[in-house]
Nucleic acid binder design. Structure first.
Lengths: 256, 256
DNA sequence: GAGCGGCTTTGATCAGGATCAAGCCGCGCG
DNA sequence: CGCGCGGCTTGATCCTGATCAAAGCCGCTC
């Protein structure tokens, strides 16, 4: 199945343009160009003035990941931090017996690397072809000490992520299966809306198993719940995602 | 049941001393004295030099909470931030139908108020008689802008909390009941060890229902698991907590 | 010390979601 | 075109942990 992110405005063409604009032939790693960056205004980079952004740009490398390609693995030495510029990633922790918890999905504008340790505590890989802005972690940390607004934005990002995580704990600890899926679908829709604007069509670049592993359910349970909602005309099956016909019915399931 | 924190070295006598040292008669709210503060070295305050700490002290108020007393409720305007100096609190989110998720417990040295919003997103109340250092949130934020090391420590605290939260998501999403309780007991033991030093005796100031609401289980399940472990001599019942006889058996349950 | 209330334990039964097991569908490929 | 493969759906059954119910324990107060 090819995820049609184009249908939702997250095209990767734009990134290819960026690459060309930077005068970079290799798609592997080259300087990014902040001036034309689509996520500049809502990523942590928004802390940088037009003058200071040059310092940030000097540290940056534009990288592209093919679908399914890993960005890093849990336990790897955390040498880099990243800002997602297009595409999406899944962030997960694995238990040795195969059980998996997806702790979150990263979308354009998200910062990856709010980690206190020398090693990554989770793995990250691309759900779809994805591009990121990569920074050397030590240099980035040094810059954040020199440019306080950047540090403040990092702090904001961390507290925001923390709040999201706490909300997800409620979902995992106290919500029933149907509520979990409803919560996920509505939140995911909100996140996409902030990036592409409101739309009834919700792209789901992750598979059913990924949703299940995010929600603490099995793939069968997720599949059955979505199938029922389709029968009940709450959602509509569209390639690469769903169309939310009746968001109120979903919200009603969460009315604590 | 009276929680005997004295048995674990977290006495509240010390705090009463502090109050006296500050020349404060009302136990309700008075200036704190950082110089003699027991958590000074591992709280966010450790970012402050001896000279700068005076600025922090000027913003601080020492407050005491009786057992069960609320610090704030979810939805309240977040006017203050806090550092716990003794005792412990539970931080929880409630659903309207009575379901509860305890998102964490706060212990001495912990900072409360890493919230991005104007309102608190969870409620906090004291499990035992507890004392805290209270700061006006706006003033504290202003000080953190003026004293970068403080901001850096806040950032560290936020990323640390985030990591804890992500680990707890794995517990809630993918661990079975017994594993959840084992994980909780071992982590809680570790946290107490960092404060009071290692000890086989683990104080449990929270009730069974609180553990259940933290772990996404019912009180009956938690009770049954602990009862079984006592029968199997993995733990021993002691007033106000348990003694961990065989921590390896517990760790073995988590061997991913 | 009887009575009470809050919390915990223990037992019996239930059910939500997991597990097991096919089958289906779309797609790439020989 | 037939085949295989990966991801998804659907059905049957099972089981872990929830729910329901009752009793126990302990510290209060009167």
């Amino acid at each position: 199945m090819t995820i049609m992110l184009d249908a939702n405005g997250i095209t990767i063409d734009r990134e290819v343009d960026l690459t060309v604009a930077g005068g970079c032939v290799s798609a592997e790693s080259c300087r990014s160009v902040c001036a034309t960056c689509r996520v500049r205004l809502y990523a942590v980079c928004s802390a940088m003035s037009d003058e200071d952004i040059a310092d940030l740009e000097r540290l940056s490398h534009h990288i592209e990941l093919a679908q399914r390609a890993p960005l890093f693995m849990a336990g790897d030495l955390a040498r880099s931090v990243y800002t997602v510029t297009s595409g999406s990633l899944r962030l997960q922790r694995d238990l040795a017996d195969g059980r998996r918890q997806i702790i979150g999905f990263a979308l354009p504008g998200d910062f990856i690397g709010l980690s206190p340790d020398a090693a990554y505590s989770f793995s990250a890989d691309a759900l779809v072809p994805t591009s990121l802005c990569q920074f050397d972690r030590a240099q980035f940390t040094a810059l954040s000490r020199a440019r306080q607004p950047l540090l403040e934005r990092l702090y904001d990002a961390a507290t925001h992520e923390l709040k999201i995580a706490q909300e997800h704990m409620v979902v995992l600890g106290r919500r029933r299966a149907e509520e979990r899926v409803a919560s996920f679908l509505l939140r995911w829709r909100e996140r996409l809306a902030r990036i592409n604007g409101k739309s009834a069509t919700v792209a789901l670049p992750m598979g059913r198993q990924d949703m299940a592993d995010h929600l603490g359910l099995t793939i069968e349970t997720v599949s059955r719940i979505l199938a029922r909602w389709m029968r009940e005309r709450i959602i509509l099956d569209v390639p690469g995602g769903v169309r939310v016909i009746d968001p109120e019915r979903l919200s009603a399931m969460l009315l604590d």
